[in-house]
Design a protein around this nucleic acid. Sequence first.
DNA 1: TATGAATGAGACTTCATTCAT
DNA 2: GATGAATGAAGTCTCATTCAT
Lengths: 189, 189, 189, 189
Amino acid sequence: MRVYKDKEIQIFETAWELITEKGYHETTISHIAKAAGIGKGTIYEYFASKEELVASMVIHNLETQRQKTLEKLGKAVSAEDKLRIMGEADIEGALGLMRTMKLLQTLKSFDHCQVKEEVFELMRERYLLVEEIMREGMTQGVFDLENPRHGAMLFLGTMNNTLMSNHFGGSLSIDPQEVLEFVLHKLKT
Amino acid sequence: MRVYKDKEIQIFETAWELITEKGYHETTISHIAKAAGIGKGTIYEYFASKEELVASMVIHNLETQRQKTLEKLGKAVSAEDKLRIMGEADIEGALGLMRTMKLLQTLKSFDHCQVKEEVFELMRERYLLVEEIMREGMTQGVFDLENPRHGAMLFLGTMNNTLMSNHFGGSLSIDPQEVLEFVLHKLKT
Amino acid sequence: MRVYKDKEIQIFETAWELITEKGYHETTISHIAKAAGIGKGTIYEYFASKEELVASMVIHNLETQRQKTLEKLGKAVSAEDKLRIMGEADIEGALGLMRTMKLLQTLKSFDHCQVKEEVFELMRERYLLVEEIMREGMTQGVFDLENPRHGAMLFLGTMNNTLMSNHFGGSLSIDPQEVLEFVLHKLKT
Amino acid sequence: MRVYKDKEIQIFETAWELITEKGYHETTISHIAKAAGIGKGTIYEYFASKEELVASMVIHNLETQRQKTLEKLGKAVSAEDKLRIMGEADIEGALGLMRTMKLLQTLKSFDHCQVKEEVFELMRERYLLVEEIMREGMTQGVFDLENPRHGAMLFLGTMNNTLMSNHFGGSLSIDPQEVLEFVLHKLKT
DNA sequence: TATGAATGAGACTTCATTCAT
DNA sequence: GATGAATGAAGTCTCATTCAT
């Protein structure tokens, strides 16, 4: 896990706000530099290109997020608790999660960017983590599943969709906490 | 439901391929024109701007898709069958579905585009349709749900996520048909 | 003096309104065709190019204007009356005169247009006409001039400037009729 | 009176030559950049648009011209001398004057340009300056006028027309210095 | 190290002109 | 003769990137 310099973090934070809000192409290097209070050339001292900046930023965010998740999970014992913790973390950080999803779409159109693979690897890990929890739950006899991967899909898909739905079209609003409990209930029966 | 001219459909098809594959900003009007075998100016005979072209295209696709879905649903009676039909249609047209999702992200950054609302309205309708089926299933005593919207989130979320997962990172591949049956099973218990 | 077909005159009238109002480059062939109620291609049946259309139009207008002036002048005997008639005609048709001036600027930027010379020849004739009247006035002992061309410059320049001044910046408004009398008075003393 | 940077002046000078010679629409930003020996983008570092460049340029020229005129006028005492100085300055700078007139026509078709008003205000001031001189001449008992504005129209109109006539159609050529003396003579009688 | 003026490739869009009907 | 769909050259403007300071 690469460690970033303070200046790089500062650039990440500004770029994150702008790019996730307005979009990749709608945010110029000039915008970022001005908002970060630094010169345009300075950004190129730390990142080889705009694409590299964004790719690094996404990786940094995913890794930070994963770190936080793992820390939180450490306190839980039962599989159900672990899922609940993850779900609540997602609900709490819904905005960030949605923004990350948006950026992933952007990343897909990057052509000559090796970091891309790394990003998708991190996404995969997230799935595998949930899958592992499902397996635990099955062992503990709490989750009624034949295939833990199915459970992971159900859990992550339902939560993602709920949060995205709230984020996009306001009129369909729904309480994500209730959905979380509903999903946990369904996993158990 | 607006009817489009042949030429417009022809442009839609070419633009759809290119834009969903490479991305909105990565696809130029010149690309589209060349790929469609027409002149650059011709596109502007039919659409006032690149944004308008894409917005119209998305609406056209969503409406066409909805039409097909409704036709297929007409043949089913039980709520379970209806969901299965929808799920299978999504699996079959997974590529198109993923591409539509991608475009929706693009649309969000269109500023002065009234059609945007229309698009999100169509997305909402899809949810409400599934919600309605859930309600039917509850009445028929087949689905075990307290809130039909929760069921809709679970169904659409899980399926979307499964298809997206297959589409994005190959290594996590999973059989969507199995997931569909798993979800239907969970809805019933 | 070339005679134009009805359709050509119809095109002239529409084009004149639009081009003098909005400008040459700001008025498209499509605008003209639509406003004239004919097809775009039809204009090219009568004129080889947009430039040719405008050049012909200006010539036609200058010739028509000259014809009218000569007719009016036929009724006058004294040089002073002739100038007064010309001046009043200009005042009455000030808008058209200003518009003609504007178009002449446009014509200057036409490169490969033979008609251009013809237009400037017509402008010159107008000067020579007034010069001739000055000469008459000198012979009649009414105008106090050494060089009739100086008188022509003074008459045409003062009137043009007055009308242009009224046409452009409203706040400097001045009664052109009074100016006309003032000029005639000065020519006599 | 806004002060312009060296680079801006450099762009003004190149643009002035090209645009007054060939016309606004006939001169492209690329032409200007190439002729000025700078990059296309550089122009947009200093001016928001082509229209803004031209508007600023015209204002700059009018203000510079006015400044020069006022300086020269400072040395004269009699109203007649003042007019003679202005007239000779116009004769000397005839080319520039004609070019300014040409540009003013262009400016009229600029739509969303607040500077337009400013330009016409400067034009008006020029008139008022001459009008003031006329009033002085009347007080000094040198000019035989009832209305000073009439005198201003006569002076500026005749000189403008003479210079324009020389500038446009060569064959009507006339010595502007002689016309100047003629006008001054007429103003006195 | 930090900067921002300068750059030019390339995007979107317009419009005079052509030509098949 | 009349039309207007189709065209593509050319124009304005943006912005990632460079490099001298």
